[in-house]
Write a protein that binds this DNA or RNA. Structure first.
Lengths: 332, 332
DNA sequence: TTGTATGCGTTATCAA
DNA sequence: TTGATAACGCATACAA
C-alpha cells in the first residue's frame, strides 16, 4: 500500500538522474574534493534541493570511514547535580557547528563502552569528562587510537589532548584572597581529601599546598568532611571573636549557602564565603550576588574541547595539547 | 610504518576465515536470524572473541536500514537548570540496555535538525523533550515517519506516543492539600500564566482550574510573575494575621526557598511551601526535608519513554500510546 | 571538466 | 545446516 516511488529516501543516484549528471559528480559536489563547473554545480544543487536529498550516513561512513559522530562519555547524575548538562549541551552545539554529532556513552558502560564505539566505528573521536586521576577509560581511549580530548587532567594522559579550568590557579586565587581579606583560616568543605582521586580535586589541593608554601600571611587550612548543611555552623564555631574564616569548596556551594542563609549567618562578618559557581548563583538572590565568585566557565571549556578535537580531526599531523582556562573573580 | 595486518579492524570476513566458515555464517550467528549448529556457533564466537571483532556500524546500518541510534532532542540550558541531565543520562542508560545509542540533537537545530537526522538515517527513532504546546518539531517528527516518543504532551500529538508526569493530577494534589491545610489562598510563582505555551505548564493550569471547580473549600489562586527572590516576602505580605498561604510553582523552587530561608520565613506558620522536587531537595537540609514534596519522577518518566520507544521499534504493528506517571506526595 | 567502475562490510536471498 | 552472491549508497581511483 504505502510504497510508491516517493516513500523511498532519495539517493545520490536520484539526484544525478534529475540533474543529468553522473552519480559521482553529485558526490564530488557534496564533498568538494574535485573542482566542478559552476553550471553543473548549480544543476546538482537544484536537484538536491528539489528532492530534499540528504546523503545516507551509513553509506557515507562505510565508504569514508568517518562517521561524523563524536562520542561523549557522560557521568552518572550523583546527588542531583546538573552541571554536566551545560557541558553536554554546549559540546553538542559546538560539535554541530563543525559538522559533527554527539553520541552519548554512559559511565555505566565503562571502558568497554569506549572500546565498543571505537571498534564498531560509530564514533570517530571521543570526549571524556569527570575523570578520576587514574581512570581505566583513559587507557581505553588512547588504545582505541581515536582522536580524543579529555575535560580534566588524568594521570596517564599520554599524548592525549586535555582541556580544563586551571584548578591549581583556582586554589592560588582562593588562598590569595583569604590572605588579602585577613582571614587566618580557610575552611575547605566537601571532604576534598577523601575525593583526591578526582583529577580536579587533586589539582586543586596541589594548588593549595603550593600557594601555602609561597610567601604571605600564615593561613591555616581546615579540611571539613562533614555534612554540608553543617558547614556554616562549624565554620562559625571555630572562629574566635574578632577573627574571620574563609569558606570554600568545589561544588555543592548552594547547599552550604542555603544552610548559612537558614542559620542567618550568610552575611556574618566572621565568615567569608567564596564560591566556584556560575552566573546562576548571582541570579538566585542579591545576597548571593554579593559573594565573591569564580566562574567555572563551563561553556568556554566545552567550546575549547570541541575546537581542540576538531583540530585533531582536521589538521593533518596536529599534535595533542594541554589547554587550561584561567579562573578569575567575577566580583571584585 | 604503522600498518601491519593488525592495524586494520577485523571484519566478519576475518572471523569467518579464522573459524573456517563462510562470512554469511558469521552474520547469521550475530543476528540470530537463522538456526546455527551449536558447534559452528561456538567456533564463530571463539573467533570473534579472539579477534575482538565488532560489526561495523556503517555497513550494518547501510544494509539493514537500522542504525541502532535514537535521536534525543535536548533543550538549551536556561537559567542554569540542570534537570534535563537526569532525563538525558537515564534515557541514555536505558537505551543502551536495549541495544541502542543516544545521539543528541540540540534545540538550536530546530525542526531542521529533526529532518536532517531522519533523512540521513543516523537515527531510526526520536525522543523529544521540553516541548511547547505548539512546537514545530513535533510536526517534523511525525512527518519523518520515524517511531517517536514525546516527553510531554504537545497539542498536535497526532498518533505519536507520549509520556510524562501527570501535571493535571499534580495540580489537583496541590489544590487538595492547600484546602486540607486550611489555606484560603494558593500563590503560584514563576509567571505560569505567561508560560502557558509550555505543554506542562498548560496542563498544570488546566488542572488547577478543574480542581477549583470541584467541591471543596473556596481557594483563591494568585499568580505571581515577579522575581523569585521576592516570592516569600510577597506571599507573607498578602497573608492576613492568623491565616495561611500555600506557595507552589513549577521549577526554580530552590531559589524561592533560599529567599525564604534568607528572610527567616521558611518555617513561618503563615506560609505553606510545597515543592515539585526530587530527593536532592530533601538532602540539601533538614529544613527542606520537612517541606511537602512531589517528586517529578524524572527517572521513571525517562525509562518509560525508552521502553515505549523500544516497543514501537520492536513490536510489529505496535500502536502509539499516551502514558502518564502518577504524582504523589513524598512527605505526608 | 566529467563519466565509469570498484569496493567499503554488512544482511538476507537463493541454492545446495 | 551451511555456502555463494547480490545489493545497500556513497567516495574515489582511473579513464577520457
Amino acid at each position: 500500500m504505502r510504497a510508491d516511488s516517493r516513500s523511498r529516501r532519495p539517493t545520490s543516484q536520484d539526484v544525478a538522474r534529475l540533474a543529468g549528471v553522473a552519480q559521482s559528480t553529485v558526490s564530488y559536489v557534496l564533498t568538494g574534493s574535485r573542482p566542478i563547473s559552476e553550471e553543473t554545480r548549480a544543476r546538482v544543487e537544484d536537484a538536491i534541493e528539489k528532492l530534499g536529498y540528504h546523503p545516507n550516513s551509513g553509506a557515507r561512513s562505510l565508504r569514508s570511514r568517518r562517521s561524523g559522530v563524536i562520542g561523549l562519555m557522560v557521568p552518572q547524575p550523583r546527588g542531583g547535580r546538573g552541571e554536566p548538562f551545560e557541558f553536554i549541551e554546549t559540546i553538542s552545539r559546538e560539535a554541530r557547528r563543525a559538522g559533527y554529532d554527539i553520541l552519548l556513552v554512559t559511565e555505566m558502560e565503562g571502558a568497554e563502552g569506549i572500546r565498543r564505539v571505537a571498534r564498531t566505528g560509530v564514533c570517530e573521536a571521543l570526549i571524556l569528562m569527570e575523570l578520576d586521576r587514574r581512570d581505566e577509560r583513559v587507557g581505553a581511549v588512547l588504545a582505541s587510537g581515536l582522536p580524543s580530548v579529555m575535560i580534566g587532567i588524568p594521570e596517564a594522559l599520554g599524548d592525549g589532548s586535555a582541556v580544563d579550568l586551571d584548578f591549581e590557579r583556582l586554589a592560588a586565587l582562593v588562598v590569595e584572597r583569604a590572605r588579602a581579606e585577613l582571614c587566618p583560616r580557610l575552611l575547605l568543605f566537601g571532604g576534598l581529601e577523601q575525593r583526591r582521586h578526582r583529577n580536579d580535586v587533586s589539582r586543586f589541593l596541589t594548588g593549595i599546598d603550593a600557594a601555602l608554601a609561597r610567601d604571605g600571611a600564615p593561613l591555616q587550612v581546615i579540611h571539613d568532611a562533614g555534612p554540608l548543611a553543617g558547614v556554616p555552623a562549624r565554620a562559625r564555631e571555630l572562629t574566635p571573636e574578632g577573627e574571620r574564616t574563609a569558606v570554600f569548596g568545589l561544588g555543592r556551594v548552594q547547599q552550604v549557602l542555603f544552610a548559612a542563609a537558614a542559620a542567618g549567618i550568610l552575611t556574618d562578618p566572621a565568615l567569608r564565603f567564596m564560591a566556584l559557581a556560575g552566573e546562576e548563583l548571582a541570579a538566585t538572590s542579591p545576597l548571593l550576588a554579593a559573594i565573591p565568585r569564580i566562574d567555572p566557565r563551563r561553556a568556554e571549556v566545552s567550546e575549547l574541547a570541541v575546537r581542540e578535537l576538531v583540530r585533531l580531526l582536521q589538521v593533518e599531523g596536529a599534535t595533542p595539547r594541554l589547554q587550561l582556562v584561567e579562573p578569575e573573580w567575577s566580583v571584585a
